[in-house]
Amino acid sequence: MFLNQRPLKVFSGQSNRALAQEICDNLGITLGNSETQKFNNDNIIVRYQESLREADVFIVQALSTPTSDNLMELLLMIDAAKSASAHRVTAVIPYYSYARSDKKDEPRISISARLVADLIQTAGADRVLTMTLHSPQVHGFFKVPVDHLSSEVVIANHLITHIDNVQDGVVLATDAGDIKRASALARRLNANLAFIDKRRLSDTNVQARGLIGDVKDRKVFVVDDEISTAGSLVEAVHVAKAAGATDVYVAVTHGVYVGPAVERIAALDAVEVCSTNTVEVPEWKLEQGKKLKVLTVAPLFAEAIQRIHTGESVSSLFE
């Protein structure tokens, strides 16, 4: 087997240093040394404090709040790494927030998911490693290789080890667009599948028109790619309970939790709401939203980075 002899270096932007550090701990390496400064005029400067020459560089940066600052920092880190003669630069983007804007569904708007992909490539990224894109077609906006990880194995392991008789429950997709993701989880749990037919009226207002499937007298596992304001989540839990579900558990990849999300979750009739650490959840949100739980995907990212570095298959992680 070919082993890459070039040095492996992992650096982190400011968005989620805890995840980057945990990835490095799993890899058995030291997190790279870099600094980011923001001047009074809001300009950002990134500086690497060690040699990157001919290194295989991985930059960990989630496009979470403040999204524009984090995106700009990522672009500058990629550009600076290329200027410092890195052999290859991989943008590790645990949360790609613009993935929702994947099509032109209104007149005179930008397809920003494609625009952000163009920016990342123009900055000099040689490949991208990300997790659970809201729309899988965003993968196609990149002309460089993209490794698209899934958190379903982490979520499935959590549910299996913490909940009795998961096979008797029902995995509930919050809308028809999430059926494929929910179906994959249902197969891992050997559970049944259901979904909600819904209509989005605005960013914070979702209307459910019906539930397809049987959840009466069963535990329900609501799955989605992310929780933002929790509007869809609240509606999904209410629909499930109204249809006769017993206990409701929620598991998503990205816990963004903006606006009224934490307050809504605190009042929600659900046992727990799990997300992974693709987005860093502040301690105060965890304390306020007592039902919130965070699962780690650092070992998954570490294994993917190791495989990319040594030229092994990443897709085999999910076989």
Rank of each mutant, 00 (worst) to 15 (best):
G289A: 06
T204D: 14
R209I: 04
K241G: 04
N190R: 13
Q288M: 13
V116C: 02
R188E: 13
N190A: 11
S151E: 01
S150Y: 15
Y48P: 05
N157G: 13
V138D: 10
G177Q: 07
F11H: 11
N33S: 15
A176E: 14
K198L: 12
V166C: 12
R264A: 05
F142A: 05
L286M: 15
I227Q: 10
A84H: 07
V297H: 01
E312W: 00
L268S: 02
D126G: 14
H139P: 01
P145L: 07
V297S: 08
S232P: 04
P7G: 13
L295I: 05
L189S: 12
V170S: 02
L268C: 03
H139W: 10
Q21G: 02
H134C: 03
I120E: 05
S34G: 01
G124C: 07
L75E: 08
I160W: 03
I160G: 01
M1F: 02
D203Y: 02
K104G: 11
S85F: 09
S12F: 02
T161E: 15
Q288D: 03
E50H: 10
S12G: 05
I109W: 00
N192Y: 06
S316H: 14
L63W: 08
A55H: 15
T204F: 11
A123K: 06
F195G: 04
V239L: 13
F2R: 14
I120L: 12
D178N: 13
S83V: 00
T174P: 15
D164K: 15
R209G: 00
C24V: 07
T278K: 11
S68N: 15
M72K: 11
R6P: 00
E287H: 10
I196T: 12
L292K: 10
P299S: 05
D224G: 01
L185S: 11
N70V: 00
A208Y: 03
G213A: 06
T90N: 02
L286C: 06
S112A: 13
R47Y: 02
R53D: 07
S316Y: 01
D56G: 09
V206T: 13
K291R: 15
L63P: 09
R53Y: 06
A230T: 03
V271F: 03
I305W: 07
E226T: 07
V57H: 04
S85C: 13
L76A: 02
E73F: 09
L317E: 06
T253P: 04
P260K: 10
T30V: 15
L119I: 00
K293C: 05
D247V: 01
G32C: 06
I212C: 09
Q306I: 00
V271A: 08
G231R: 04
L317V: 06
K38G: 01
T67K: 15
V222K: 10
